[in-house]
Design a protein around this nucleic acid. Sequence first.
DNA 1: ATTGGCGCCTGAAAGC
DNA 2: TGCTTTCAGGCGCCAA
Length: 302
Amino acid sequence: MPELPEVETVRRGLQAVLEGARIARVEARRPDLRFPFPEKFSERLTGKTITALGRRAKYLTMYLAGGPVLICHLGMSGSFRIEMSDDSEMPDNSEMLGAFYHERSKNAVHDHVVFHVVSPKGVRSRVTFNDPRRFGFMLFSEGAPDTHPMLAGLGVEPTGNALDGGLLASLLKGRKSPLKAALLDQRLIAGLGNIYVSEALWRASLSPLRESGTIAKPGKKARQQSDALAEAIRAVIADAIAAGGSSLRDYVQTDGSLGYFQHSFAVYDREGEPCSKHGCGGHIERVVQSGRSTFYCRTCQM
DNA sequence: ATTGGCGCCTGAAAGC
DNA sequence: TGCTTTCAGGCGCCAA
């Protein structure tokens, strides 16, 4: 599931091909994804030069010279695929060609948007957005994307130094909701999803069931806990971005896919397995909070 | 103001 | 074995 680290990995992959490139043509193969495509979607992109690729939380931003900013969200199942026009993936073995085309047409059902681009050196590429579940979307922002209604209310990025124990405590102070729900709330911290919330809480030895406000009370103990949680969130995100970056290099060379990558997780989807925290001896449990799975170890997470 | 729950959508996996 | 049901989850929206 694309959370912040996966989106950042996709951004880096796209940046290599798209930054400085000119959009020659855009195909939108259906009228909508999660939302209808904006008015004159293809027309407004065609002919524009892409100046930069950015990211805010789980949103990708594509900056166009003299034009709007394209905001993209991958939803649950969105991915980008990059293909050079020479199509080096095509097998030269004729026996494999049938299977190749069969597989390609099967996957192409969910190819919803195709960007045809030309690099400054004249190299042509296709960048295809594929999204089986269509929870993704693309919108234009006329001004700075941070002011777009969709992004304006987002909380602090868990990258960099902004999120420390003090800020986290101020965000959680007085909240009755469980920590799991608070960390999923994009208005507080922007970019965490179901997987990394479980991972961060496990690293910080804090229970996802615990009332958020209790780690923001006055006193040394609560302060240590909010410090630990802020540090765990930043570390889990930084580690995942690093892992995505290393898998990205290999992945792009083989088939151009820029989706998300299966990292190894300490607790996520590990129900029943022993807790890997040194000396713990507990086991990972799955509980459901607000209809979503949470994985944690009740022995070491308090 | 906060918080919890639903629905969107498809494919994989589990259940009968 | 083959059909049906459940589950996965980001996020806007609604309701309490």
